[in-house]
Amino acid sequence: MATTITRTPQPKPRALQVLLEPYLYVSPTLLLLGLTLFVPVLIGIYYSFIHFVVYEPLNHGFAGLENYIKAFNDPIFWLSLRNTVVWTFSSLVFQLLFGLGLALLLVTPFPGQKLYQALVFLPWAVPAFLSGLTWSWLFNPVIGPLAHWAAALGLLPNADNILADPSIALIGPIIANIWFGIPFFAITLLATLTAIPKEMYEAADMDGASSWQQFRFITLPYIAPTIVITALLRTVWIANFSDLIWVMTGGGPADATQITSSYIFTVAYNKLDYGYAAAISVILLMLLILYAVIMLRLRSRLEVTT
């Protein structure tokens, strides 16, 4: 609620200084972001229209839509878009479901909970490159147990490395991503869950509501807005998050696990085709903006109706 604050008049307000102060505070940040992020984005958009391959220094110049047409005709680019959708949504759904499960388990206190939380949230703190390496070692039948277990359970025909099989390799980074992302959802949802007034459950208990009914009619409506917002933000974040893929498969075997952002990195870092990498980046940026706009529209419509 807005409260009226009576401001004490300052002795001799030095008008200009007071006016400039906030700008003084924000300008270093804006300057840094401008020079290291926004100007490079503009340069990147410019690169997308030139032929710019590092080992073809003589063939360097304005190329019109060449790079964009190349993307349109590049099957790996289309595959990477499909993979981005698969990667993003399967990671997100499982992170969210398991995260919600963990949050629900943690909402009623138990002895040793502090230590338990410190341990169970630990994957969040593990750097992505280490998570990626760790999981690729676990999938490697030479050194890790997972392939052997999967074969024993009949999930795999032989104890082979799933990261080496183009048809299922993407599952590897997705599992690593789920492992890494559960704590994020558990922590944010736990915060929301603990904010639900206890009286609501007590009243529901007295009215004889079952646990499921309590979850369905009290808990879920209460946490739904948090779920929607965090899920929307995470979608964009996960779509951009290629470290795990880069470390675990390098986008392979045979580009089968490229998501668009790892493919951009491959094109720039391995193939040294800066123009093409820039063009795909611009396309990815456009698609993400489109997604964000649609989601914001949907959200504002939701807010109107509820």
Partner: peptide, 23 residues
């Protein structure tokens, strides 16, 4: 300005990789 800061959290950083490298 707040919106600009928020924006940086969501755009694909790969887009600035090469330009930044060149700069």
């Amino acid at each position: 300005i707040a919106f600009i800061l928020l924006l940086t959290q969501f755009f694909p950083l790969v887009i600035v990789l090469v330009p930044l490298f060149r700069v």
